[in-house]
Design a protein around this nucleic acid. Structure first.
Lengths: 223, 223, 223, 223
DNA sequence: GATGAATGAGGCTTCATTCAT
DNA sequence: GATGAATGAAGCCTCATTCAT
């Protein structure tokens, strides 16, 4: 960011690769740890042990524990910004199908980073104002595919939503809820049935009249 | 031994009142602290300072820090179990109106205990298995009015919901979301508009055909 | 001690009786507590609870926790100064039999105050210099019957001891050892067999030549 | 992973040495503290200050305060298991001389770890069941040389003891007594005279008839 | 006399962070 | 680049002691 980039020396490339590798190694270890022991239990020494590096090394790649936390969260949010748009594209042109695909992709990312996802909800003193703001901005940004799909649907006359942003944000929340209230939903649902049922419910509220048949597959419920 | 035991000593009543008063004092202080500095700030010393008592005194009323946290959460959940049913009763017989009243009441309780409500989402090592289980049970229990209203509505033919429990739980989540994502919603909404819009959106998904006019007031959106 | 004693008013007698009763009540409770939970576990609140009085009351009878400890120890040592001489008197004129009786009495008192006896060995910061000195003086004093018996025996030509004081003090130590190393001795011995065997062993070292037959009963070992 | 594993890294040796050094440093500091201020003074902060290290560092070498205490005690008991057998060997073949040497060695170890030795007698809540058991076992084990010497003496016909274990354990106790009742013995004795007199007294009880002349040097008393 | 609520210093332990090697 | 020993502030909790009632 503040590094001079006038000419990329081969040395720099190697360094860059190492930084990449170490960061990934640490981020994965952190995620693994949170998954295993809960996100509270991640001390820097535990993280070092899990990643198989020394404590000191962490500080070479992340300025502080906050930075690690921030990076873990950013990492998840980053997963959204690549995975979700991909899924949307694959869904084709239809805004309703795109919306469905976006929500499903959202839920799947959440599912594979369950504990990291919950982190977003920790209003920790550790994360300073700047960090929190960045996360909030990122979260809003990554929800953009959902928002766009809803808007497109409305414009195309296939969806009816007085407040497209609210609809989109609710879907985001329900995706998060899969992680937040996993203890509740897992009693009666699989990830797939969760996605299907929530989607069906949401569409019922916003699908334009007469389109029920066209999207019957998305409106079906139960197993 | 040499004490007269003819009747319940007035002393006991006084003691009971003191216990009540101290507990309230501490719980309120804890809530205040979370409101002001974030829920991380609830150290025992900070709590003591905020409540204007000594650290040792806290331990006369709560066995440990866990107990305090548990009590704060229980306190909020307790507020649901008195406020929500009252609101539902006042709403009359109609299940749709009862549902609306329940959701509104939920949101209002959340709003007045915003930071304590967020506590439920903290998977802290502090709360042990038993404590977490108790909270989960309580949460499910307190969501019962919502569930009952949805079920009644379905039975009365006024609502159409393939999975009433999911509908009810989603409403619960959206009520919580007012606290969890307050930073987001407060940019564009007041509590009242939040309640109105979320309710309208939810009803659109489940209101039986042809009842739109009867509940037009609940379906209106915007400011 | 520093109270004026010019005339004993009936009121004073009553007060005196109460003081006596309360002290006994507290001392017994303390002993009970030490017996049950180990002498470390005796907090003032635990003592109050065990004695069935309030914390504050303890401070009316004992100036501090140290005082209570001191009193408990003094209490045990006091038991020696009444019980042991009595036992010695009952044993008759013979110094050897008096010695045997003294040792047995010592052991029995120790046995019935096992945990309190161990207290003497705690070099606690709690007990100040004055307290420690007082205990040491008392201990030396209460061992006097043993010492006297040994000296008499030597004078009477029935015992041979280059250092009567050492002999007497060793016996005192062995009596204490019944409490200190109870976990060891209880594996193979009862109190009675402990007394008998230790006495037999000690007498072998000091009994004058040719008296073995006269005290054959004291020299027998085993069960 | 990328580390060469051809041989044991010299690094490990250095680490081992550091661990050794730190443990010794801390154990010595603990002993010094007990010596100076009494065994109550061993708070973790006091220990850190005395050892000239930080509080946190202690926890790198000992898991808890219990561990430190246990290690201090184990340390003394360890001194027995090396020093005493050596002294016994140097004493030659004769079981009586071996016994004398063992007792003297015992007393000398006790003398140089006086306050730590007293620790064994503290039935602290800190030491848990496992710790106490371990100490008890160690203590019994380290008294083995004494026991062996007595048994050998009996077998060789040089000692007469109905209960060799009791004789040995008493000698152990008397060695401890030098620490426990140092305030008493130091009034009239040096360590050397203590050893001599106690040994003489003990031998009188168990030396076989007619051997008084052979061991006259061990039976002499006084200064 | 008696109570017990209240205090707060002090003890144990954890863990983010630094720095010499 | 990497290590991990070392630091020390901060958190939780206990308990001897006081004092208003």
């Amino acid at each position: 960011m503040s590094e001079p980039q006038t000419s990329i020396k081969p040395h720099d490339a190697a360094r860059q690769a190492l930084v990449e590798h170490r960061s990934r190694q640490l981020l994965d270890a952190a995620a693994r740890l949170m998954e295993r022991d809960g996100s509270e239990a991640v001390s820097m020494q535990a993280l070092a042990a899990e990643a198989g590096v020394s404590v000191g090394l962490i500080y070479r790649y992340f300025g502080s524990k906050d930075d690690v936390l921030l990076a873990v969260i950013t990492d998840v949010l980053g997963a959204f910004s690549t995975t979700v748009p991909e899924a949307v594209e694959e869904a084709g042109e239809d805004p309703v199908r795109r919306l469905a695909a976006a929500f499903a992709a959202y839920c799947r990312v959440i599912d594979s980073h369950r504990h990291a996802a919950v982190l977003t909800y920790r209003e920790s003193k550790s994360l300073d104002e700047a960090g929190r703001d960045r996360i909030k901005r990122l979260e809003v940004e990554t929800s953009e595919p959902l928002r766009a799909a809803v808007r497109d649907g409305v414009e195309a006359g296939k969806l009816v939503a007085a407040d497209p942003d609210l609809v989109a944000y609710n879907l985001l929340l329900l995706a998060h809820a899969w992680a937040l209230k996993h203890w509740y939903f897992e009693q009666t649902r699989t990830l797939d049935s969760y996605i299907r049922d929530q989607l069906a419910l949401a569409l019922r509220a916003i699908l334009a009249d007469g389109l029920g048949d066209a999207y019957a597959d998305l409106l079906s419920v139960g197993r």
